[in-house]
């Protein structure tokens, strides 16, 4: 049985500390002045996005996994609190399946990308 503190420290608080930096970076790359382009739309242009994914793929992937861990564990905690832990197996199982699906999708997004 995993201790509650282990889950919370590593899946909620440590990921939260990492997310502060990762999320700031992820939001700042959409600021046009920092990317040397004119508009917000230009930051989403195919060449820019390809450059971002191919150069910082690992960082994006870490961000996706850390965000999924933090988000899904949070969602799980909220659902368990709302149901007084009655459907623990069902909720945790569903969350783990969702994590695997979207983790795989995120991995494919980075690995399977081709130049535009």
């Amino acid at each position: 049985m995993v201790k509650k503190s282990t889950v919370q420290i590593w899946l909620q608080y440590v990921t939260a500390i990492l997310l502060i930096f990762l999320l700031t970076w992820h939001l700042l790359v959409r600021v046009p002045w920092l990317r040397g382009v004119e508009t917000f739309k230009d930051t989403l242009a195919s060449e820019k996005v390809y450059h971002e994914v191919s150069s910082y793929g690992i960082l994006l992937l870490i961000f996706a996994y850390v965000a999924l861990l933090h988000g899904f564990n949070g969602l799980r905690t909220i659902l368990l609190e709302w149901t007084s832990g009655k459907y623990n197996g069902l909720i945790t199982g569903t969350i783990i399946i969702l994590f695997i699906i979207f983790g795989a999708l995120a991995t494919y997004t980075v690995i399977g990308i081709t130049p535009p």
Partner: peptide, 9 residues
Amino acid sequence: PVAASDERF
């Protein structure tokens, strides 16, 4: 607000 739903709290 947590005790409002979670009986285990």
